[in-house]
Design a binder for these strands. Sequence first.
DNA 1: CGTATAGTTGATTAGTATCAACGCTAGTGG
DNA 2: CCACTAGCGTTGATACTAATCAACTATACG
Lengths: 253, 253
Amino acid sequence: MGRLHMPPLDYDGHKLEQEADLQSPRCRNCDIVREVAFCADLAHDEVKRLAAVRCHAALPASFTVFREGDPVDHVYSISNGAVKLYKLLPDGRRQIIGFLFSGDMFGLGVDGGYCYTAETITPTQLCRFTNRKLDMLMDEIPRIERRMFSMAVKDLVAAQEQMLLLGRKTAREKVATFLVKLASRASRTGDPIPAQVALPMSRADIADYLGLTIETVSRTFTQLRRDAIIDLPASGHAVLNDWGALKELAEGA
Amino acid sequence: MGRLHMPPLDYDGHKLEQEADLQSPRCRNCDIVREVAFCADLAHDEVKRLAAVRCHAALPASFTVFREGDPVDHVYSISNGAVKLYKLLPDGRRQIIGFLFSGDMFGLGVDGGYCYTAETITPTQLCRFTNRKLDMLMDEIPRIERRMFSMAVKDLVAAQEQMLLLGRKTAREKVATFLVKLASRASRTGDPIPAQVALPMSRADIADYLGLTIETVSRTFTQLRRDAIIDLPASGHAVLNDWGALKELAEGA
DNA sequence: CGTATAGTTGATTAGTATCAACGCTAGTGG
DNA sequence: CCACTAGCGTTGATACTAATCAACTATACG
């Protein structure tokens, strides 16, 4: 399957843009590969090998990168932007599996089919590797495979944490956990916990991530604000006033 | 950490048994390794290498193999029996991450700590590999690492499926999905779907797996029986009368 | 400025949890 | 051999959390 998947019909306006970008044989911004998550501890020549096989794409917001069930042909890494992964039930109920940001990777699948849909939240720059070439590279450079493995394990651990949230936490605890996780991620670079976190995703996305409705998410935010635990200065941002209280809620104490 | 983890206090009676079995330098039933999941497509000499580093243990029911947070020192494979993996909140709320049976493996962790507790459901025979020796083997035999990787991916896909269940399915759909999954697993050997599935786990375990209470699980079973979709001939068994209806429910149609 | 979309808030409902009682089975000891 | 007890599972009554339905506000967009 060397072919691109069909771009979604509802984004036909972006189709040309996508194909132009994704199929470009020239790889721009070559040093971006260094920033890609699984290049972190590779040697210089190994990074060069990776750079040779990757392509770059700039996508608009709300762009479907691939759909659940599409043939697995690429692995993606986010250079910049935000992506959501989700699964759907036949009647439209949706569960968001994860929100991904700069440095995160996605595109694992089984039996040749992706098991979730990937869609951009904001305008996003992606790095793309064909599975075929990545497999070849993994044979040559075992460290790349190690890296992929440890990333899959990391994802698995996160998924199990989310199962605990979905199965056993209250709405208030779910929202608190969500904010704590966003803030922790933002500060993964070693900084202290940031006072303000960006919420690029809609309330509907947050609801479908936490197994709630839009209304419950909204009410819970309002309630946390009334309790002076957070502030909501503008849509798309949250200020974390009381980190201790948030953490406590998140841990279910 | 070459030391065994501390056996749980509440199973002191089994402590000697565990230590005797787990620390036995002799590896009995050597051909059992062939049955271990990740040996499936290894060459004969590779299996022999694995056999040389594994130990075997027979554990009673309700035995804690390791606890969340314990140092990661081994990877386990189930020769025979059933195991549950779970996470706890401080106040005792529990989420079962997965039920495992013959051929399944567990014991992945991050930062040197297991991220769930593993406990036997029935009397269980385990195969155990130290991480150190497995790492060495993975360096020598890349296929073992590939195998571990694909198993982690399989677990990840299952976890994402479970997130959809926990976040978006009704009690009835959850129970139907649970039964469908158990039956599908039992028939993974190529047989048709079995009419009867074994339920070795308690109602409390099922509830904590599906994000429900014992009572709701019980009521839902009763309701499915009244609808002639299943039968409950004896505790510990379910008869699947209407596979089509179960599948439909499971898929959320 | 008017329209569409996202978000908030209120009223009511529904699904599941909680609390409580009871039945069944298995193991125990007289 | 049989009452006794403990644990598991079922069933019923009620409570409560979050969903649903509906109205309204704020924000972005042409």
